[in-house]
Write a protein that binds this DNA or RNA. Structure first.
Lengths: 167, 167
DNA sequence: GCATCCTGGTTGAAGGTTCAACAACGGCCG
DNA sequence: CGGCCGTTGTTGAACCTTCAACCAGGATGC
């Protein structure tokens, strides 16, 4: 843990930005999630699994690769794929090169479901993100996103180094 | 449902922005959630309930007001407050003016827990949001957030109008 | 070969969220 | 008053996520 005695609290303006940001993000993701659940019977996390598989060669990926593409934990992915398999949208195959491995494959049914879901989802994204922002704001959002992502990635590396140092 | 036959799909650049944005947001919120859970034993949604109560007069709010301040459903709030009450951080009182009503009150213990949690949380927010963005980007993020929020609010109004029209 | 450690993946329990249903109360209008 | 509707808040079931524990299989070093 870092030193907490000299916390740099947020100024009034910073708090405003912070709250506006969190409000927008939570409302936005909730809206998308509800749209998908209502119209296609799956949460957004599951939609993204299907997307990742649909774009992979042979529409197949090893579980660990799929997890990293989807920024998901192994456990979460395992539960999710179990559900998707029960629906008949995904199948699991054994990995020939590594007997621990498991390969998730998108079925034709799953691909059809994804195609059907995509239109509504993309429409919602366009309506509530791209249509409400100027081209300049979009460029800015891309930069901001990359900066935040980079900040978190280096942070992860830092944490790993510290864990190392602890041993 | 709208007409799905002429969906305006995302261009390659739009997809890049979209994915960068979602990646940043999910990683960021997951990081904050994990930090709070680890260091203070509560998810971010619960932290925000405590914050809302701490800023209210008498540190008390009616459930429905608390729900709207926290952008939470009644049900979710009800479950959450039940847990917070079990911890001794919040108490429920009867509402004198409306016998249906229930008033959530932050206890002294709860206020202490919040104070203890705040430092780590704010530090994480500053480190991974404010410290990685330029002042210009921050202004832009505020504008973007307000635009998205506004777009969702008008959308809700539209949906309500359509529901009305259906009857 | 074998002990050790690391990686890949699954499982079950605990906790959080959603949804639909419900009970209780207020407000309104006849 | 009495009937009707909208609001408030809770509940239970189903579902999703997280966490810790675990098994099985590779990889490394002796």
């Amino acid at each position: 843990m870092g030193d907490m005695s000299d916390v740099r609290w947020l100024s009034a303006e910073e708090q405003q930005v912070w709250r506006a940001f969190m409000t927008a993000v939570t409302k936005f993701t909730e809206h998308l999630d509800r749209q998908l659940q209502r119209d296609s019977g799956m949460p957004m996390a599951y939609y993204e699994i299907l997307v990742a598989l649909s774009e992979a060669p042979e529409r197949a990926l090893r579980m660990s690769e799929l997890a990293s593409v989807c920024h998901s934990s192994r456990s979460r992915l395992s539960h999710a794929v179990a559900r998707l398999e029960k629906e008949g949208w995904v199948e699991r195959q054994a990995c020939p090169s590594d007997r621990r491995g498991s390969i998730a494959v998108l079925t034709d049914v799953g691909f059809g479901v994804l195609e059907a879901a995509a239109a509504g989802h993309v429409t919602a994204v366009r309506e509530h993100l791209f249509d409400v922002l100027t081209p300049e704001q979009l460029r800015s959002l891309a930069e901001i996103s990359r900066a935040v992502d980079a900040g978190l990635t280096t942070e992860c590396a830092k944490v790993r180094r510290e864990e190392f140092a602890d041993l």
